[in-house]
Amino acid sequence: MTLIDLANPTRFLALTARVLPWLAAATVLLLAIGLYQAALAPDDYQQGATVKIMFIHVPNAWLSMFVWGVMSIASLGTLVWRHPLADVAAKAAAPIGAAFTFLALLTGSLWGRPMWGTYWEWDARLTSVLILFLMYLGLMALWRAVDDPSRAARAAAVLTLVGALNLPIIKFSVDWWNTLHQPASVMRMGGSALDKSFLIPLLVMAIAFTLLFVTLHLAAMRNEILRRRVRSLQMMQASRVAFSSEIGPGARGQNASNEVGAA
């Protein structure tokens, strides 16, 4: 199976239809194991049971950046390799990435609540994630603003890549801004000296969440391909001259899939 095989949306749909149930099952299994292990993990001597939010927070934070990486590669696929499924992948990933980023923010602020006494502190890490969240929303707004997906694809690809280049700069600036204002870091999330009893469940959860992303992403890509097919079918229906003879449904489906490929 190569990328060329996947380039055909029809083959992609057939393949993912077979793979998706297994992926979903693996995700559920790993999530169950991870949550069970996380529940068994000991409380932190300082933070108590709240430390367990980490098992959700860290995978989400990891995915918030990972998904942008996936979108950047997909954007290269759109701009450089002109892979027909690249912009479908990029478009489908954006809302999922935004959701993971939102969960990272939410769990981060819940975790911070007992530490800081407020739900929100302009902590360097959380602030960076917040900016990432805004960038995801901006990207989604861009996809929504243009009706024709193939036209939006290029603009979104450029924006995604610029974002990928800018993210380290933003991260650095925010760190600098934050230390300028409050030299002592309030808390360190997921410090390097993690005990093994934390590390293993965390790794399991990280893999489980990554699988969750892959599952959701493939499903969303399928939806997007189908949505574009509906769109091109509608356009064909609109351009059909009134009262003309019906075109066979098979022929129409075939044309539509070609159009998605070209889009």
Partner: peptide, 21 residues
């Protein structure tokens, strides 16, 4: 998009005035 703009403007402010709650 209006809401997104609102969100962005408000988030920008602390970077200008500092994170002092």
């Amino acid at each position: 998009i209006g809401v997104l703009f609102f969100l962005t403007v408000v988030v920008l402010m602390p970077f200008a005035v500092g994170p002092d709650l």
